[in-house]
Every structure is written in structure tokens, then in C-alpha cells.
């Protein structure tokens, strides 16, 4: 991607909740870039801040109880602090988001057609008839078998997989430059998940839509993304090409996460587990946030860790990264096979 301008450039992004003396910091110093057409995965366990990061980019966090610092440059404007009106012009048009549970994103009292048509009319000022035609096309493009019927259906009349497709159709009808997908397949069965992943890959290749894929499922990341960001306790701890991260992770947490995946090929092997648990937001260490659980902890780990650039595509937040070789999810040989 060298030479190209990033589509999205996030720097120093931090989200605070609560306000006043009880304010807690949910995410800290988030830095990353997404290039046009690139597919980037954000992985991490519940509570690590991956969803909050996605919501912060789109201004979807409750303003009364949230404070956001840092910047997120998208096509020359900073999304953070953008007025509601200007943000509305970006949201759904240039950047769309899809969620884990389609029922929470779809309005139960409007038909799919009304919901998709609203997006089209808001952003393109199309007539009702034009909007209908375009909406049916969009539903067909996500592989919905009888798009006209689905257009006139209410969300509860559709199966889970169909609802997820309808939500994707709404998200993609304006051909956004960036799609933020937050666990879009987590609630689905694997055979339906495979259909949705195919669809997202297809749309991204065909329209050049960049994808920011938030998921806890490393298999999904490996299938869909070229680059992955690993988050832990509100920070990005590693940013690497997927191939690299799976075989040669540099952060002990990434390595632990990769090694805890059950594999189809091995039975009875005891998966190594990471001892302890994630520190709470109120009790965040000032040094490395993973140190307490880390087998490689040493003097110096109690100092705040900055994210260091190893090469053009690999960054890691661990001052000891050069001291050890960590196992990943795949050996060099498996990766080459």
C-alpha cells in the first residue's frame, strides 16, 4: 500500500465513558490506517474496545456520557467532532456499518423496502419508483432469492440469514467507500456464515469497498482480511499482515490468543491457556496492560509501552519483542502447505 493515501487514518483515538470524577477510559491511543479497498480485521476478546472503536468512528456513541479524543481522518475531514448534520452525510453514504444482530439494526415496524428506500432517498433524492427499483436491485445483489417479495416484507418475516443479507443490502446500497462490519456472522450458523463471507468478499472486490472487520473469530479474519489489528484492554497491541501474524506473532497476547484456538485436526492436545484475566477499566496498570498475565514479563514492563514499528507492515506494543520467538496458530510449514 506504500504510496497510496489512506482512506481512513485514525490517530490517538481514545474513548472515555461516564464523565466527571467517575470517568473511565475504554480505549487509549488507537492508531491505525485503512487504505482504499483494503480489508482489515480487528480481533480481541469481549471488552477489549473493538466495538467501541467502530462506534466512535461513526459518532454512534451516546454524546451525553462519552468523551472522545484523537482524530479519524476520512477523505480530508476529521470524523471525530464532526457536526451531526455533516456526519449524517457521511454515515450510510461513504461509511456504513453492519452489526451482529440484524434485529437490533432493522426497525420492526417498517418493511425492508421502506428502510432501504429511506437510505436511497436521503442520500440521492431519488423518486419513490426509482428508490424501489434500486432497492430491489440491491436486495438481489446480496443473493436474496425473491427480492421483490423481501422488499415488501417486515423483518420478522425473514430468517436470520435473510435479515443479515437485508441489513448488508441497506449498508451497501450507497456503495460506501468503507464498510465497518461488527461481528456480522457471529449469530449465524457456519453454512450461512460462509454465504455472508462470500458476499462481503465479492462486494469488496467488485466495488473496491474497504472493509473494517471486527470479530473475535480468527478463522473469519484469516479467510477475509489481509491485515489484522489485535486489541487488548483498550489498546492496539499488534498490527500486522494476517499471514505474518498467524505464523510469527510478536506480541505475547496475540500468540496466546492464536494458540488457544481449538483445531479440527488435533484431538486431545491440551490447549495452552492464558492465566488470569483482563484488568478492569478502573484498575488499568500504567505499564503494559498484559504484563500481569504475561509469561515473558520482566523489568521494564511496568513502564508505559508505545507501539513500535518493526517494518513497513508490522507494529507491536511490547518492548521485549526482539527477545523472543513466539508460536502462532500455524507453523511455517503449515502456512507454506
Amino acid at each position: 500500500m506504500a504510496g497510496a493515501e489512506p482512506l481512513l487514518s485514525v490517530s490517538g483515538l481514545g474513548v472515555f465513558f461516564g464523565g466527571g470524577p467517575d470517568e473511565v477510559q475504554a480505549t487509549k491511543d488507537i492508531d491505525f490506517a485503512v487504505y482504499p479497498g483494503e480489508r482489515v480485521g480487528i480481533v480481541g476478546e469481549s471488552g477489549c474496545g473493538k466495538t467501541v472503536t467502530g462506534l466512535a468512528l461513526l459518532g454512534l456513541l451516546p454524546p451525553a456520557t462519552t468523551r472522545i479524543v484523537g482524530s479519524a481522518m476520512f477523505e480530508g475531514q476529521n470524523l471525530i467532532g464532526l457536526s451531526r448534520d455533516r456526519l449524517r452525510r457521511v454515515r450510510g453514504r461513504k461509511i456504513s456499518m453492519i452489526f451482529q444482530e440484524p434485529m437490533s439494526a432493522l426497525d420492526p415496524v417498517f418493511t425492508i423496502g421502506q428502510q432501504i428506500g429511506e437510505t436511497i432517498r436521503t442520500h440521492f433524492g431519488a423518486s419513490k419508483a426509482q428508490a424501489r427499483e434500486r432497492a430491489i436491485d440491491a436486495l438481489a445483489s446480496v443473493g436474496i432469492p425473491s427480492p421483490a417479495r423481501v422488499h415488501d416484507s417486515y423483518p420478522h418475516q425473514l430468517s436470520g440469514g435473510m435479515r443479515q443479507r437485508a441489513m448488508i443490502a441497506i449498508a451497501l446500497v450507497c456503495e460506501p467507500r468503507l464498510l465497518i462490519a461488527d461481528e456480522p456472522t457471529t449469530a449465524l450458523d457456519v453454512t450461512i456464515q460462509a454465504q455472508i463471507i462470500d458476499l462481503l468478499l465479492d462486494l469488496s472486490t467488485r466495488n473496491g469497498t474497504a472493509l473494517l472487520f471486527i470479530t473475535h473469530d480468527l478463522g473469519v479474519i484469516a479467510e477475509t482480511c489481509t491485515r489484522m489489528l489485535t486489541m487488548y484492554a483498550g489498546q492496539v497491541v499488534e498490527d500486522a499482515m494476517v499471514d505474518d501474524a498467524l505464523v510469527r506473532p510478536l506480541h505475547p497476547y496475540t500468540s496466546g490468543l492464536l494458540r488457544s484456538l481449538p483445531r479440527l485436526s488435533e484431538r486431545g492436545t491440551v490447549l495452552p491457556s492464558i492465566a488470569g484475566r483482563v484488568p478492569t477499566l478502573r484498575d488499568m496498570p500504567t505499564g503494559c496492560r498484559f504484563a500481569e498475565r504475561c509469561a515473558h514479563r520482566q523489568v521494564g514492563c511496568d513502564q508505559a509501552q508505545s507501539i513500535a514499528r518493526i517494518d513497513a507492515t508490522h507494529r507491536v506494543r511490547c518492548h521485549r519483542h526482539a527477545d523472543f520467538v513466539l508460536p502462532g496458530a500455524l507453523t511455517e510449514r503449515e502456512a507454506a502447505a
Binding site: 430468517s159 440469514g161 457456519v190 453454512t191 450461512i192 456464515q193 460462509a194 454465504q195 463471507i197 462470500d198 468478499l201 473469530d217 480468527l218 478463522g219 473469519v220 484469516a222 479467510e223 494476517v242 499471514d243 498467524l246 484456538l261 479440527l264 496458530a329 500455524l330 503449515e334 502456512a335 502447505a337
Partner: peptide, 21 residues
């Protein structure tokens, strides 16, 4: 079912999605 499971090392080969429900 087995073909639909995302694997770590089968990247960018298409998942074999079976149609229907």
C-alpha cells in the same frame, strides 16, 4: 459443513457455501 468452517490456512480460497436453508 466442514467446508464452510473458516480455516486459518485456507485463505482466499472461497468458502464452499451451500445454497439454501
Amino acid at each position: 459443513l466442514l467446508a464452510a468452517i473458516p480455516r486459518l490456512h485456507s485463505k482466499r480460497t472461497r468458502l464452499a457455501a451451500i445454497p439454501g436453508q
